[in-house]
Structure formats: C-alpha cells, structure tokens
C-alpha cells in the first residue's frame, strides 16, 4: 500500500467518521442512556449489579451519574439526563409538575436508622415513637450530626424534626455538609447521634462506637421513585432509552433482584421492592 493511499484513508476516516456517527444518531439512537441518581443509591452497590442486566437485556448502554439529589433532579429538568432515580419525594413532585417527565413510579424503599453512642445518653432507644425519639434527641444530651447538604437523607431528617414540631438549633446540632460516609465518621468521632440509611451503615467499616438506637418505623422508610424524562425537557433527551429503563426497573424479575440484593454482601437485604404499591399507604400504614 503506497504512502498516499494510507493518507487518503486516514483523511476519509477523519471526515466520514463523525458523519457516520451523526446518521447513526438519528436512526436507532444507540447513544448511552443517562441515569441521574443520588450518591446514596449508588453507594449501596445496587446499581453495579442492576446495570449490566439492563444493558444486556435492552441493548442500550447505561451511564449512571451519581450526584446529589438536587443535582440529579436538576439534570432531569434540563434534559441532561434521560431518567432519574431519586428519594426526595417533594423535589421529585416539583420536577413532575414542570411537565417534562413521564409518570413517576414507586420502585422500592429502604429504611433509615438513628445511630448514637453505645451508652445512648439521650435514651433514644426507650422512645415509643419517632416523634418521641426526635424530642429526646433535641434535649441535647449529646450532639446530633446532620448531613446538612440538601441530600435526600437531609430532607428526610428535616421532615422528621418538623413532624415532631421541633426546629433544631443550638450547640448540640451540627451540620457536616458532607456525604453519608464522612458524616458517620464525624458522628463516631464526636460520640454523637446521626441519621443514616441502613445500607451505608452496613457497608461502613466504622461501626465501633456507634449503635442503632431507633429503627423499624414506617416514618423512616425511604421511598425511591423512577422518573423518565421526555423531549419536552430538551431535544436531545434519549426518551426511548429512559422510558425503557423506567419500565424495566419495575418489572417482576428486576424487582426480585432488588429484593435479594445485599444478602451476599451484608448478610441482609437493603431494599424492599415496592412496584405497584401505594406510597402514602406505605408511609402511613403502621
């Protein structure tokens, strides 16, 4: 092959390569589907297990962008993500109300636990209800470390204070402004109370010094919804891919996968599949 032939081929590749990509774009839409989700969802490891199954079954490539709740929902609103999996019901509803999404569907839930020093100076373990537990925390017998980062976990914590008729402030209430892992570390260091999802608690290696002081309350259920985004959010939204994922994750077989996830890693399951169930009933039903 002469030198010029090589050059000509390279030149053709350079010119036609991008063109080819453009035409493929319009036809079968083999662009990656972007799933925006919260770091806590991703941190549990569930998606590492689900994504390959989805990719094999659907033929789509799925890129999981794990960010804060606020950012995940904003990426959906701007059409920079094709489907959103989040656990901030109020912010999700606001997104749906903008009219750029498909149906918001309940996927699963996990639960939160209140952690505290082993000697439990505020006697939270003796509380009969979540309201009472929050009141005992607010006595300030020990510090409480809040995520303080507008995450789904932070939103739930604030809702719990509000439901208990409390406005946390004072020297005992500290905001970490960081992720769950870092917040747990601070709580362990300061021998303080904190609120965490069970998954992060099980996954963390820093269990010394802290123990679960309150758990198994429907008020602490953390509901995950999936929201497919439509082209109304932006013309480049991969609507078909996003909708495929939203339908896939509530499929019976996938729900089963979600239900057994965690047993081999942590010895217990982390999520309860909830497709088809009613969110309000779940929360209020105890």
């Amino acid at each position: 092959m002469g030198r010029w032939t090589v050059w000509r081929m390279l030149w053709l590749l350079a010119v036609l390569g991008p063109l080819g990509a453009c035409t493929a774009d319009g036809a079968a839409d083999d662009r990656p589907v972007i799933l925006a989700t919260t770091t806590s969802t991703y941190d549990s490891g569930l998606l590492d297990e689900l994504v390959p199954v989805f990719e094999q079954g659907s033929g789509y490539r799925l890129d999981v962008i794990a960010v804060g709740s606020g950012q995940a929902i904003e990426l959906g609103r701007r059409g920079e993500a094709d489907v959103v999996l989040a656990h901030s019901p109020e912010a999700e509803q606001e997104l749906v109300d903008t009219g750029v999404t498909g149906d918001r569907v309940l996927v699963m839930y996990n639960d939160f636990v209140v952690l505290g020093p082993i000697d439990d100076p505020a006697q939270v373990a003796a509380a009969g209800s979540i309201t009472e537990a929050m009141q005992r925390l607010a006595t300030g017998a020990a510090e409480f470390i809040s995520r303080g980062d507008d995450s789904g976990t932070h939103a739930l914590e604030l809702a719990l204070w509000e439901q208990a008729g409390l406005a946390p402030s004072g020297g005992w209430y500290r905001e970490a402004g960081q992720g769950m892992g870092a917040t747990l570390q601070i709580a362990a260091d300061a021998e303080a109370y904190t609120l965490t999802d069970r998954g992060t608690w099980l996954a963390t290696e820093l269990q010394e010094g802290l123990a679960i002081v309150y758990e198994d309350d429907p008020a602490l259920f953390n509901l995950y919804h999936v929201i497919p985004i439509t082209v109304a959010a932006g013309e480049r939204v991969h609507e078909a891919g996003g909708h495929t994922f939203a339908e896939w994750i509530v499929d019976d077989e996938v729900q089963e996968l979600i239900g057994v996830f965690g047993i081999d890693l942590y010895g217990e399951t982390l999520f309860v599949p909830a497709a088809g169930r009613d969110a309000d009933e779940l929360r209020g039903g105890s």
Binding site: A66, G181, L184, E205
Partner: peptide, 10 residues
C-alpha cells in the same frame, strides 16, 4: 471519593 462516600475509608 466514591470509596470515602461509601464509608470505606481504608
């Protein structure tokens, strides 16, 4: 960053 946020500091 990911490992830290997962609480796996080591």
């Amino acid at each position: 960053v990911l490992e830290a946020s997962r609480g796996r500091f080591a």
